[in-house]
Design a protein around this nucleic acid. Structure first.
Lengths: 341, 341
DNA sequence: TTTGCCTTTTGAACCGGTTTAAACGCCATC
DNA sequence: GATGGCGTTTAAACCGGTTCAAAAGGCAAA
């Protein structure tokens, strides 16, 4: 009649065996007679018993949870279309295994390290996802020191003991440039992301090499910061050049949409006077006017792959292989058009 | 020399006391001599001891974590500016208390209930946030049944045993309408959210009563779905009316920005031909062209308040009071202007 | 000196699982 | 009938904390 959830002792009593046997049966350990296993599982079923995560956690020293640390630079977090879909992908793997996702939001800078430290010291998680990799990222060494398994989202530039799940941004970026060149553009500029991010520089070097490959030179590469406000500013600087570009490639959609607004506010018509391309294919990209030409990745699969990889590591596998996802792809819409005469 | 983290027994041994005393000292229980407390804390400090969450969890039957279930309707989740900021606010409270935030992403519909069930059965959290309340929300009864403490974000329409943290959307919505009426608009329409959401209908009834208060009648109230695609469709329907509105009020920024794109694609100039207003003041609202007139709430404070309230409940308080946050406020930008002649 | 009371401290049980060494039952073998 | 071996099951220790009844210590009153 009690509302308490049953414990392993209740099941053992009901099945007429010892606690140890119940544990064996539950975990599929060999050495128990099949008839006993059946009896135990039946008893567990009747009682609606589910082993306590807490007790298991204590005795096997596992948290049955993975962690994701996100920096709370409001701009980085706030309308980034990557994380929600990534998290959904992660969850699709975790929920099947009965694991939980622990989210840690920290303010950018110093506190970030503290975020990982807390997660490790509190032993809240069995491993973490390392996102938004930076050059010579100090977090890699930190996690090694903390002994916390990790998976890096994209490949770090230094040496790393952790498996990497990568999604190559470069083919998409190159395709954007080629698309613009086909349209007759010769004066192409880029608004890049902050150069300390690995994926930001990957996109800008891809941009530069694609432009060079066509025998051209970038009009300019402005360092943006992935925020809409930064996109506006960079766009204004580009448009104020003595010989402004006829096409601008942005490192993400947020900056691109903001840049689109800035261009229109300056009296330009997109794409007649200026072509604009983004990166992410966020929800709004399709619906702004004109629809934004952009590059689409698959953050959901990214999340799935990252979770699977991290779990291999957590399960004790050594030599977990890197995973390479299908590269990002060009999505052409109306914001890019023929170069003005 | 061991790399193992110290346990309470190590501290007890070093301080020359029993485990129980260390526990008392750590938790500030009365009954220990001050000198003993100091000695114990010093020993703990020297060893760098931090009590194991897992062990505590098991013995006190608490998870030291709160849960947030989000439906993975990709559109609802994906570029919703509310959650990231809300979560940041929640974390600001949790991190100070050493609690964790467990995120559960479920697909919309049936699975949602399973999400809460899992969180409760796995005893992963001590309480949950109930967001995106629906009319006669079945989750309230479910949580009561599961015995899981909760806080509702906004006030449910049925009876609820849980405290509510509310942020009144209505004053902002009313202010939008009054602003438009001052500008001379008489033909005003709304693109609402799905009518099963409490906050969606709150916004639409506020809209309707504000229009009525001015002696006018809404041109139409279109049911949107909070997605950009839905915003586009609803906008097209409104513009196709025999006597289309001169101003459209949207229930969120995503629909508004998409509607802005649709209006421009239809050859209209905003705000000369059509005024547009959103809701949320998302990052892009300021930077699209023209800048979006919208309504600003404070999801970070919402998160803080919700976490504090839920923690009171988790700490065993009864009669936890509801919290009323400052209402949403009008932000006027360029997307609203004088009604066309 | 004994008694009693109050403050401080301890030891052991407990939370609910996992793990391992040892015990058990049974049958075949010598 | 004792011995050995094998498959099965158990009892108890353990994970690292919390909690509480009881013991110990100190001091004043009788």
């Amino acid at each position: 009649m009690s509302k308490q959830r049953p414990t392993i002792a209740d099941v053992a009593h009901r099945a007429g065996v010892s606690k140890g046997s119940v544990s064996f049966a539950l975990n599929g350990r060999p050495g128990l007679a099949q008839s006993t296993v059946d009896k135990i599982l039946a008893a567990a079923d009747e009682l609606g018993w589910r082993p306590s995560n807490r007790a298991r956690s204590l005795s096997v020293s596992k948290a049955f949870a993975l962690g994701l640390v996100i920096t709370r630079d409001p701009a980085v977090l706030s309308s980034d279309p990557f994380f929600p879909a990534f998290i959904a992908g992660v969850e699709s793997v975790l929920s099947a295994r009965g694991q939980a996702l622990v989210l840690q939001v920290v303010t950018a800078g110093e506190d970030e390290e503290a975020g990982y430290r807390r997660l490790a010291q509190d032993a809240r998680v069995d491993g973490v996802f390392l996102s938004d990799l930076r050059h010579d990222d100090p977090r890699i060494g930190l996690l090694v020191e903390l002994g916390l398994p990790a998976v890096t989202l994209n490949r770090p530039d230094g040496t790393s003991p952790f498996p990497a799940v990568t999604l190559d941004d470069r083919p998409g970026t190159i395709a954007v440039v080629e698309h613009l060149i086909e349209l007759g553009h010769t004066r192409i500029a880029q608004v890049a992301g902050p150069p300390d991010f690995v994926h930001a520089t990957a996109r800008s070097t891809a941009f530069e090499s694609a432009v060079s490959a066509a025998g051209l030179r970038p009009v300019a590469v402005e360092a943006g910061d992935f925020t809409a406000a930064g996109g506006i500013e960079a766009t204004r600087r580009l448009l104020a050049l003595p010989e402004p570009p006829t096409a601008i490639v942005y490192a993400n959609d947020r900056m691109a949409i903001a840049g689109l607004g800035a261009a229109q506010a300056a009296g330009l018509t997109v794409p007649d006077d200026l072509s604009i391309a983004g990166f992410d294919d966020s929800e709004l990209a399709e619906y702004v006017h004109p629809g934004l030409t952009t590059v689409r990745a698959d953050p959901f699969r990214f999340g799935e792959a990252a979770a699977q990889t991290l779990n291999q590591l957590v399960d004790g596998a050594t030599d977990v292989p890197d995973v390479e996802l299908p590269p990002a792809q060009l999505v052409v819409r109306r914001s890019t058009g023929a170069a003005p005469a």
